[in-house]
Simulated assay, not measured.
Amino acid sequence: MLSLTYLLYFGQLGILTPYLGIFLDGRGFSSADIGTLFALITLTRIIGPSLWAGVADKHGNPLQVMQLGSLLTVVLFAGVFFVQGFWWLTLVFALMMMFWTAVLPQLEVITLQHLKPTSVSYGKIRLWGSVGFIVFAVIVGQSIDVFGSETPIYVSTAVLALLFIATLYITPVDTPQQHDDVSGSWTLALKKPFVVFIVSSLLLQMSFGTFYGFFALYMRDLGYDGTQTGLLIALGVLAEVGIFLVASRIIIRFGVRLTLFISLALTAIRWWALGFAGELWLVVIVTQLLHALSFGLTHATSVHFIHHFFPHKFQSRGQAIYISLTFGIGGAVGHFLSGQLWQDGAGAELAFGMAGAFAMAGALLLFLAPKKAFG
């Protein structure tokens, strides 16, 4: 049941991450509206992870928190069928995202609790999440060609409902209740190595705003159909899965600082190539393969760094700080600025150029940081 839950959770991401822009465009929103809406709903990732981590920590029952989050997510998401207009849809998506942030952190905790007394590896369970992302990204991409821009919303509602049902069949595991020292975790977070790491990670997520918000629309404008777009998205996730299998060896061989520097520098090249030569299918394929570094290797390296930088009792708070600041603030700023520059496709080169500049700035920050700071 854990594998199915991962499949449905990341399957939902495979629907909304690439295709929410298509849905909003179909509803008549401008690119500035789309970027602003993405930015506003992304802001919930600033407070959501820490809020739900505190609730789960206080009550000692992550499974109930996950079930509540799943239920309220699907209930609120269904509101998209009943509202129109920018601010109403923004409110619905923002509230949905607030409860959505309760799901994955608790799922990770529950999964590790279940696997601890067994010989089953975490990777074998987490792999089903990538499978779900690929399957739904391809299916919805094809379906949009046939059924139109409202397709992602109908499929998302069904997937979210199934996700809630799946959580009801997960058995709880009794574990001792732990309480993190929040002030202690922030004391560590203000140290120079972590500040450099966070700022570079924030710049990376700012660079992703253009891709997450407008990639599917960009592909459509360049003449790629929904099936081709879905396959390109799936290719990026496959590359991500492949790098996860060897990430630990790469990190040990090159270290955190150099691994992140190379990944961010190549991410900058990825965005520039996509923005200035996206009409060439071979260029798009190569840029999607670079997703292995842009997301897969940077995420694995970030988790590794936080795990070794924070003592055991502060690690969950360290992860919450990382997610809130980088994916929350960085994602919101990146989405907003991309929406202002996109101009319904006319500013695509400028938007991807900006994204590349953000990623390169993060790479340069890491390059100039003292090597000993990262161990």
Rank of each mutant, 00 (worst) to 15 (best):
F314G: 01
S149M: 03
V303F: 03
G242Q: 08
S119A: 10
A373G: 11
L204I: 11
K371Q: 03
S130W: 01
D174K: 15
A359I: 06
Q178K: 14
T118N: 04
G223D: 04
S121V: 06
I306Y: 06
P152S: 10
Q12K: 11
R253S: 11
G132D: 09
P172W: 08
I323M: 08
Y218T: 06
T326K: 14
R220G: 14
S3E: 12
H312Y: 05
L264E: 02
I22E: 12
V237D: 01
V286A: 15
G255V: 10
F208W: 09
G35N: 03
V103P: 09
P370W: 04
L71V: 12
L350A: 10
H114G: 09
A265Y: 06
F295P: 07
S248K: 14
I34F: 05
T326V: 04
T90V: 06
L104I: 13
V140K: 11
V92F: 00
M98A: 13
M66A: 13
W342A: 10
D174P: 12
L63T: 07
G236F: 00
L350S: 06
H335I: 12
W342K: 06
I243Y: 01
S3A: 13
T171I: 02
L231H: 05
G132M: 10
I233K: 09
I125A: 02
F327I: 08
T151V: 05
L68A: 11
S183E: 09
A137L: 01
S324Y: 04
F261G: 00
T301D: 13
P370T: 13
A361H: 00
S201A: 11
L260W: 07
L231S: 03
V109I: 14
V246L: 01
W281D: 12
L202N: 15
G35I: 06
A363E: 02
Q12A: 13
R45E: 07
I47E: 03
W88K: 15
A234D: 03
T267H: 09
T171M: 08
V131E: 03
I250F: 01
P172M: 05
L245T: 09
A94C: 10
S200L: 00
L264D: 00
F82W: 14
D221S: 04
V131P: 07
L258K: 11
V140I: 06
